[in-house]
């Protein structure tokens, strides 16, 4: 009977697809946590790039991996960064 319903159900209801999707999500977090340096490295590089354009408050710079709801029970991983800005550099030349 189960097979009968499955025949008409959508492709993505296959349990192996659910497994794959769940695994891919959970592994993003696992991998980031295996190495404590991982987020620090990302943070350092982001700070470097942003600093070209604005002065940021390094102490208040917060970065983390988070699970964000998209629709219904669909979730995705997101890198959330909170970067307090002290001053925007004058890039006047580029505005022209």
């Amino acid at each position: 009977m189960l097979d009968f319903f499955r025949f008409f159900s959508k492709e993505d209801n296959k349990s192996k697809d659910i497994a794959k999707e769940r695994l891919q999500l959970v592994l993003i977090h696992d991998r980031a946590n295996v190495s404590p340096r991982f987020l620090d490295m990302v943070k350092g590089d982001i700070a470097k790039v942003i600093s070209n354009y604005m002065e940021i408050d390094e102490k208040g710079f917060d970065i983390r991996l988070s699970r964000v709801g998209q629709e219904e029970d669909k979730y995705t991983s997101a890198l959330i960064a909170n970067i307090p800005i002290k001053r925007v550099k004058n890039m006047g030349k580029n505005n022209g």
Partner: peptide, 16 residues
């Protein structure tokens, strides 16, 4: 089980 879509196949596993 792979045929029924109830077990991840070889490609799925390597992909992950």
């Amino acid at each position: 089980m792979v045929k029924r879509g109830d077990m991840m196949n070889i490609d799925d596993t390597i992909d992950i």
